[in-house]
C-alpha cells in the first residue's frame, strides 16, 4: 500500500445560492487544505449548511462552483472514497438496522461488508449493529452518521454541527476524533455556531455571516486581531491614571481595576514606581475568541432584536 499524501481538498469559487429574495450563500470563495481542522463558523442561518449541501451536490448552486478533489461532486463515481460527510444524523431510514444502513451505503460505493464491521467498531456501535437505527439516541445516531462518513476511508471529511445536542462525553469523543483524523493528514471541514467549540478543535477558521465570508484566518491570527489591554490595580488609581494618560495611554476604570491601552506592562510598572504608587496587580488581557466572533458577526446576525416583529425565528 502506498502512502502518498494526495492534496485532496475542497475548492469553492464564487459559490452562491439564492432562495427567492434571500441570498443564503453569497459569493463564497475559499479552499480547504489537508492536514488541519478547518472550522466553518457563523451564527445560525449564516448559510453553513447550504454551503455544505452544495459541496455534496445535494443542492445546485445558483452561481459558482464547489469542487471536491478537482471535480464537481456529481462527477464522482464513488464519492465516499473521496469525501465522507455527516450533515444530519437523522438522514436515515429509522426502520433499517444500523448494519444494513451502513451496508447499503458501502455497497453503493463498492465497499465490502468487512469495512462496515470495522467502522461500527471504530465508532463504538458494534454491540447495537442489529438494532434499528430509529431506536438510537441522538449521540448514537451521530456515531452512526460518522461511521457512514468513514466507510470509504476518505481523505476529506465534512461535518455539520457535529456536537449539537451531544452529552459532554460525546463532545469530547467528537473533538478527539476530529483532531485524530486531521493528524492522519486528512482534510477536516467542520461547521459550528459555537466559537469556543471551534477554538478547541480547529486550526483555521472560516467565518461567515448572512452567507458572506467575513474572515478566513488561523485561530492564532484570529485572537491577535482582538482587543488587547492591561488590567492594573494600584494604591492610587486616580494619580496613576493621570500619569499614564500623560504618557500617551488611555485609561478606563472597570470595577476595582483600570484597563490600560497603549503602554506595555514594563512601562506602566516603571511609571508607577517613579510616582511612588504601589502596583497590586498587572495582567495582560485580550478579547476571547467569542468576543472577536461577536464583533465580526454582530452586524450579520440575521434575526437579532427582532423578536416578535417577524415570523422568522433563528433556528
Amino acid at each position: 500500500m502506498s502512502t502518498v499524501l494526495t492534496q485532496r481538498m475542497i475548492e469553492l469559487q464564487g459559490l452562491t445560492k439564492r432562495y427567492g429574495d434571500t441570498l443564503a450563500v453569497d459569493d463564497l470563495t475559499f479552499d480547504i487544505t489537508p492536514g488541519c481542522v478547518t472550522g466553518f463558523l457563523g451564527p445560525n442561518g449564516a448559510g453553513k449548511t447550504t454551503t455544505m449541501r452544495m459541496i455534496l451536490g445535494l443542492d445546485a448552486p445558483t452561481r459558482g462552483t464547489a469542487l471536491v478533489d478537482g471535480k464537481s461532486y456529481r462527477d464522482h463515481r464513488f464519492p465516499l472514497h473521496e469525501i465522507g460527510a455527516l450533515l444530519d444524523a437523522k438522514a436515515l431510514h429509522g426502520g433499517r438496522r444500523a448494519f444494513d444502513h451502513l451496508l447499503c451505503l458501502a455497497q453503493s460505493n463498492g465497499i465490502g461488508r468487512r469495512r462496515v464491521t470495522t467502522v461500527l467498531e471504530q465508532v463504538g456501535l458494534a454491540d447495537v449493529a442489529r438494532k434499528r437505527a430509529g431506536t438510537f439516541s441522538l449521540g448514537m445516531g451521530q456515531r452512526l452518521g460518522i461511521a457512514g462518513a468513514l466507510l470509504g476511508d476518505p481523505a476529506v471529511l465534512m461535518f455539520d454541527e457535529p456536537v449539537n445536542g451531544l452529552d459532554p462525553e460525546g463532545i469530547v469523543w467528537i473533538r478527539t476524533l476530529l483532531r485524530q483524523l486531521a493528524s492522519e493528514g486528512r482534510t477536516v471541514f467542520v461547521s459550528s455556531h459555537l466559537m469556543t467549540e471551534m477554538a478547541m478543535t480547529a486550526d483555521r477558521l472560516i467565518v461567515v455571516g448572512r452567507g458572506k465570508l467575513i474572515a478566513d484566518a488561523t485561530v492564532d491570527e484570529f485572537t491577535s486581531q482582538g482587543e488587547h489591554w492591561i488590567a492594573v490595580q494600584s494604591s492610587n488609581p486616580a494619580a496613576l491614571a493621570a500619569i499614564l494618560t500623560d504618557a500617551g495611554a488611555t485609561v478606563q476604570k472597570v470595577d476595582d481595576s483600570q484597563q490600560v491601552r497603549g503602554l506595555k506592562p514594563i512601562e506602566i510598572g516603571d511609571l508607577a514606581l517613579g510616582a511612588g504608587i504601589a502596583i497590586y496587580g498587572l495582567t495582560e488581557q485580550r478579547a476571547t475568541l467569542e468576543e472577536v466572533f461577536f464583533g465580526l458577526t454582530g452586524d450579520s446576525v440575521e434575526y437579532h432584536g427582532m423578536l416578535g416583529s417577524q415570523n422568522g425565528q433563528a433556528a
Partner: peptide, 27 residues
C-alpha cells in the same frame, strides 16, 4: 442500550497514519 454502554472516550485508531491514495473500485 444507553450511550454509556457503547461510548468510548477516545476514538479507536484507524489502521493507517497517513492518508493513502487507495484504489477506487473499478466496477
Amino acid at each position: 442500550m444507553s450511550i454509556a454502554d457503547t461510548a468510548h472516550t477516545t476514538p479507536a485508531r484507524t489502521e493507517r497514519l497517513a492518508v493513502t491514495n487507495h484504489a477506487v473500485p473499478t466496477q
